[in-house]
């Protein structure tokens, strides 16, 4: 823990520290948003449609970031949207990470035809732009929250599988694995107790970088109307709705996008730093 802190506060680490802090703030905001005494994010008020931001240096005003075309408060919608976004992206990254790591372990450990088939699958999936794959699957299954998480997990497992497999290939030949095998440990024991702990770090680094990608992908799907469905507020959807009013109300599209960019920036900075800290060899991807 102390080593991590020292590395974070070193000159090269301040960006990582910035990212980590920003992410913590965002997560806290998402978690404790409902207690912030903000207006209801889904309550429309047609008499207060498209009110400009009321925030000044001295006070927040009634609608700090303005209201949208239905008079809903944009700040509360951004906070509520962050809950949905972080929940969906977090669940997808966790699910994809577990699946990808497991398949990477199996592929690297057993080798042979299992390995060949799995790695071919990885190649095939990488031949399809993520956005298209996600679009196709969501269109087929229908845009529900559960399907969305499933799709995002499905498009992200390949990167874990690839990195973990490479790591397993290196660890498999090490002496402690050989000796575990010599004393008769079962395959599952060797994989879970001896190899898994050695591949968790790269998997964690991939997970952070993947989180950013998944957040953008989710926002893109929601922007196209195939992601999170109303009345659940989502940043991508807010941008799509605000598009129509771009010439009269700049704030509707500006603030949700800013929230999205800051979130991705925070995750990217943390991910870059984690990668450099744990394994500089991963730097060139």
């Amino acid at each position: 823990m102390r080593a991590v802190w020292q590395a974070l506060t070193r000159r090269s680490g301040w960006l990582g520290l910035f990212g980590a802090t920003l992410l913590v703030v965002l997560v806290l905001l998402a978690l404790f948003g409902p207690w912030l005494d903000l207006p209801d994010p889904t309550r429309t008020n047609l008499r207060a449609r498209m009110v400009g931001p009321t925030i000044t240096w001295f006070s927040l005003g009634a609608h700090p970031l303005g209201t949208d075309q239905l008079g809903r408060d944009i700040l509360s919608r951004i906070v509520a949207g962050s809950r949905v976004t972080l929940m969906v992206a977090g669940a997808a990254v966790l699910l994809g990470g577990v699946l990808g790591t497991l398949l990477g372990l199996i592929s690297g450990y057993f080798g042979g035809w299992v390995d060949r088939i799995l790695m071919r699958l990885v190649d095939i999936q990488l031949a399809l732009p993520l956005m298209l794959l996600a679009l196709m699957v969501v269109a087929a299954l229908g845009p529900s929250l559960r399907n969305l998480i499933g799709v995002l997990a499905l498009v992200s497992w390949v990167r874990y599988a690839r990195i973990v497999r490479g790591q397993v290939l290196a660890v498999r030949e090490r002496e402690f694995v050989q000796s575990a095998r010599a004393i008769g440990a079962s395959h599952s024991r060797i994989i879970l107790r001896h190899i898994l702990p050695n591949v968790l770090t790269p998997a964690l680094v991939v997970a952070t970088l993947e989180l950013a990608r998944v957040i953008v992908l989710e926002a893109g799907l929601s922007f196209l109307g195939l992601g999170i469905q109303p009345p659940d507020p989502s940043w991508g959807r807010m941008l799509a709705d605000g598009r129509t009013y771009i010439s009269s109300a700049w704030w509707i599209i500006t603030f949700p996008g800013l929230a999205l960019m800051l979130t991705v920036l925070a995750v990217n900075l943390l991910g870059d730093w984690l990668r450099d800290f744990f394994d500089p060899r991963l730097a060139v991807r």
Binding site: L15, A212, V216, A219, G220, F223, G236, L239, G242, R243, I246, I253, T254, G257, L260, M261, L262, V264, L265, N268, L269
Partner: peptide, 14 residues
């Protein structure tokens, strides 16, 4: 860093 973090559709709108 900002360029990598800005989603395509938002940048387009801006």
């Amino acid at each position: 860093l900002l360029g990598q973090a800005t989603p395509v559709f938002w940048l387009g709108l801006l």
